[in-house]
Write a protein that binds this DNA or RNA. Structure first.
Length: 401
RNA sequence: GCGUCGGUGGCGGAGUGGUCAAUCGCACUAGACUGUAAAUCUGGCGCCUUCGGGCUUCGUUGGUUCGAAUCCAACCCGGCGCA
């Protein structure tokens, strides 16, 4: 019995892209698809009914966060993630690998998932702060010790532990424990980290296969390797060689390197298994990923931006808090058909945001999630209809103008 | 009327002789956010600026002092108490 089935319906001519369907024990995901991020078993500010109404098919939660609170054992006791959070569709959990990065090398610094190499000050400050910077995660021989950002308690997570937690959480698709490195690390470190990630991948897989969970939970291996072509390809080859159900492409990217990295990797990964570009979700990046053979994306951007007032529109992003919108009776985006755009005005949402009313974050998240999910759906349909380039062109010409 | 306390930048509220264009919070304003340390964070916020600095401010007027938001006097305004 296989935990997951992936069927490709149509390829994107001349490119690596494809449209397909992933079938999990909890339902289907039509790919390419955007995965809503629900780190702590909640898509922030939204009820699961709302998430569903936006067209979301799958939700991704986080191992590290749920392990700390409320604890994976408790989630298991309540019947697993799906039941606990009342999401009846497919679910995924991230392994905590990203927290190795965000609470480790990136802690307290201006580095995140995507950095701009056009800003040299980041590199300088990186050098000057050296090894003195405090961090909540440090990498050991077999795993990572985390100091809880909630109460300071110390926890050691190994690949086996991450998988055990993910088994308890019970998502349909889970990820191998990996190390997401900073693009500012030297090649030598990237290589060392990659070897570690590979070792952890094997351990994650072996532990997973030793349990019955592997019959109904799919495990994705994660490709790393930073911006280096040799390492990326080596990683893609190695991770491909292991019996994973699918793959994640990880890393903190310099924006300029993302496309090449994705292409290098997807040319190597086996075509018949799904690929997930971890943590990526700006419109331009989604288009890039889809063209280059990515099937799944997850990203905090729509919900995080939505709560803060940065909203996607067909003509680019706007900050709805700006004074310009105080008396704007139009919808967020006059081309959007979401519930928010057909119901509420920019002026109203501007007011909610300025007044710090919770509904502002909810409406912003709803619109943004709909916008991104819907964009990916349109691009998917473009692949199926054979007019992907047209869909892409029409979207980008407006969005970037 | 007498006594008393007080009047600081849009608001609240620090400051009680120099290091004060004046801590801080709010509001305002703009920006950032890509496997959620995030309903978060950052910058600006008297006027002008070639970003070095320049100019005018702390109820009003005058005074003391090398120097005043800070001390003194008078006046104006407000709170409270007593008549």
């Amino acid at each position: 019995m296989k935990p997951l089935e992936f069927k490709i319906e149509k390829d994107l001519e001349g490119k690596l892209g494809r449209a397909g369907t992933i079938t999990t024990p909890h339902g289907a995901i039509h790919t390419p698809a955007f995965v809503s991020v629900g780190t702590k078993a909640t898509v922030k500010a939204l009820t699961m009914d709302q998430v569903k109404s936006l067209g979301a098919e799958v939700v991704l939660a986080n191992t590290y966060h749920l392990y700390l609170q409320p604890g994976d054992e408790r989630v298991k006791k309540f019947g697993g993630l799906q039941k606990f959070m009342n999401w009846h569709g497919p679910t995924m959990t991230d392994s905590g690998g990203f927290q190795v990065f965000s609470l480790g090398a990136a802690f307290g610094k201006q580095i995140s998932k995507v950095v701009s190499i056009t800003d040299p000050s980041q590199l300088l400050s990186e050098r000057s702060t050296d090894g003195e910077a405090p961090r909540l995660a440090t990498i050991g021989a077999d795993g990572v010790s985390f100091r809880s950002h909630l109460d300071g308690s110390l926890h050691y997570i190994t690949p086996e532990k991450s998988i055990e937690i993910q088994h308890n959480l019970g998502a349909d698709i889970i990820f191998a424990f990996d190390e997401c490195t900073s693009p500012q690390e030297e090649l030598r470190y990237q290589e060392e980290a990659l070897e570690r990630t590979h070792r952890w991948a094997k351990k994650s897989l072996e532990y997973h296969k030793s349990k019955d969970n592997s019959h109904y939970q799919a495990l994705f291996g994660i490709v790393q390797g930073g911006r280096d072509e040799g390492l990326r390809k080596r990683s893609a080859e190695y991770i491909s060689s292991l019996d994973f159900d699918g793959f994640g492409i990880g890393g903190s990217f310099a924006k300029e390197d993302m496309e090449t990295a994705v292409k290098w990797v997807n040319e190597i990964l086996p075509k018949e298994k799904p690929r997930h570009l971890l943590g990526i979700g700006e419109p331009e990046d989604l288009i890039m990923g889809i063209e280059n053979g990515v099937d799944l994306f997850d990203c905090v951007a729509p919900t995080r931006n939505g709560r803060g007032g940065t909203l996607y529109t067909s003509r680019g992003k706007i900050n709805i808090r700006n004074a310009d919108f105080k008396e704007d009776m139009g919808p967020i985006d006059d081309e959007c058909e979401c519930e928010v755009c057909t119901t509420y005005s920019r002026a109203y949402i501007c007011h909610l945001m300025r007044a710090h009313e919770m509904l502002g974050g909810t409406l912003g998240s709803m619109h943004n999630l709909y916008f991104i999910i819907n964009l990916v759906k349109r691009l998917r349909q473009g692949i199926i209809d054979g007019n992907f380039d047209e869909v892409k062109k029409v979207f980008l010409s407006k969005y970037t103008s």
